[in-house]
């Protein structure tokens, strides 16, 4: 076991996981007011109408695909009669479709973010950093799928990458599994780990606000005025006075 793979496939993932968890707790306590989707739909809707649903529904499919591929051992699927060929074809077809959707959506959204003035001015530095890592993760993931699964002979990541992910989760890390995976998969995993590290400090926190409870609550919410005062936090006022944005920021330096 060389130190590099120890660093990349054990230390880094655990560090990222720790930052991910503690970071979210900290962010939620520190910054409930900043916890939002920061939607820019009111500025521009023509591009967003296509880009946003494509990206979001695409990435939800990608998420489900990763959960199935990484978390469920292949033996379990064999046991219910899904053999390697069936899985491979299913995963490749659905995965490719979802990847294309997500990437096209992301390209539309990034194009929109750069070219629509108000949207670009509302973009924070953290957003830009996040876009780099998100884009890289998606790009290398798609590249790996295309080169190995779609046009290649097929790489069975369920014998290396998936057990590695589960080994991390179960606190019995097996870095040697990941060390032998192809390069594109490795870069994809590293980008994703970095993205998890950044996650709590970006707008990606809105993922954890997915409003599932809306399906189960009564329509009209009543709340007493004393209820929300009973906490210990200080009354907050977050606002800035009106100022014209600096149009210089619209141009490339």
């Amino acid at each position: 076991m060389n130190p590099l793979s120890m660093l990349l496939w054990v230390a880094f993932p655990y560090a990222a996981a720790a930052v991910f968890i503690v970071g979210h707790i900290w962010r939620y306590r520190y910054d409930k007011f900043g916890w939002t989707t920061r939607s820019s739909q009111t500025y521009e809707n023509r591009l967003l109408r296509w880009g946003s649903p494509m990206f979001h529904f695409g990435i939800l499919c990608v998420l489900v695909g990763h959960a199935v591929g990484l978390l469920i051992p292949q033996e379990w699927l064999f046991a219910i009669g899904i053999n390697e060929t069936m899985y491979h074809i299913g995963a490749t077809v659905l995965g490719t479709a979802a990847a294309v959707f997500t990437l096209v959506g992301l390209v539309i959204l990034i194009y929109r973010r750069r070219t629509v003035g108000p949207v670009f001015l509302a973009t924070t530095r953290m957003d830009k950093v996040m876009y780099v890592f998100l884009g890289a993760t998606l790009f290398f993931g798609t590249l790996a799928t295309f080169s190995y699964q779609l046009f290649g002979t097929g790489y069975n990541y369920r014998e290396t990458i998936s057990p590695w992910v589960r080994s991390i989760i179960l606190f019995q890390p097996q870095p040697e599994l990941m060390a032998q995976a192809p390069l594109f998969f490795q870069i994809h995993a590293l980008c994703a780990t970095a993205l998890f590290l950044l996650w709590p400090f970006t707008r990606l926190v809105h993922v954890f606000s997915a409003p599932v409870q809306y399906l189960f609550r009564p329509y009209i919410v009543y709340r007493s005025r004393d209820e929300h005062r009973s906490g210990t936090r200080a009354t907050r006022r977050g606002w800035d006075p009106v100022a014209a944005p600096n149009p210089q920021r619209l141009r490339r330096p």
Binding site: R27, D31, F33, G34, R38, A122, T124, T202, A234, R236
Partner: peptide
Amino acid sequence: GPNRFGTSSGHPVPV
């Protein structure tokens, strides 16, 4: 300072 996650994020500044 505040505004780490975009305008008005974080705790408010006392008046």
